[in-house]
Every structure is written in C-alpha cells, then in structure tokens.
C-alpha cells in the first residue's frame, strides 16, 4: 500500500495486509499524533488495510507557540 506522510510530504510503500495499529507501530508513529485517512474517510486503529489502499497519515500537531 501507499502511505502518505507530511511535514515534509513523502510517500512510502508498505507491503501486506495488517491493522492500522500495526502499520503505525512499524512506522514508529504515535497514534495520538495522526489522523489515519483512507480515501475521504478516517479509519480507526483496528481497521485492516491492504496492498490496494492509499493511506494518508495526517499530522495533528501544530504549534511553535511559546
């Protein structure tokens, strides 16, 4: 599957079916820091994703405020 990451924007290819929870763990991303988007819908950590999917991991952190 294609995984889109931001800040900076980049794409990684990940093979095989697995749950979102496991995908995030492999990519070393804390679930609390991203929205997981497939198509135009958000999906939860127990959703199984596969080779045909395009998954966007949209960061939710903003700031720099002192």
């Amino acid at each position: 599957m294609k995984v889109i990451l931001r800040n900076p924007r980049r794409e990684v290819e990940v093979g095989g079916r697995r749950r979102v929870r496991e995908l995030l763990k492999e990519l070393e991303i804390l679930p609390e820091t991203v929205l997981v988007i497939r198509g135009d819908e958000m999906i939860t950590a127990d959703t199984v994703v596969g080779d045909e999917d395009v998954i966007e991991l949209r960061p939710v952190i903003s700031g720099g405020r002192a």
């Binding site: 800040n7 952190i61 720099g64």
Partner: peptide, 20 residues
C-alpha cells in the same frame, strides 16, 4: 496542514511529543 517554518524545533513541540 503545513507547519509554520519557524515552529521547527520549537520547545513547545518537544513538550507535546513527550506528553504524547
């Protein structure tokens, strides 16, 4: 969605990461 260019490395972002 993009970050303010000055926010990179900001202390508050580091604190957020620790809390997360």
């Amino acid at each position: 969605v993009d970050e303010c260019p000055f926010a990179k490395g900001a202390t508050s972002l580091m604190h957020k990461e620790i809390l997360n």
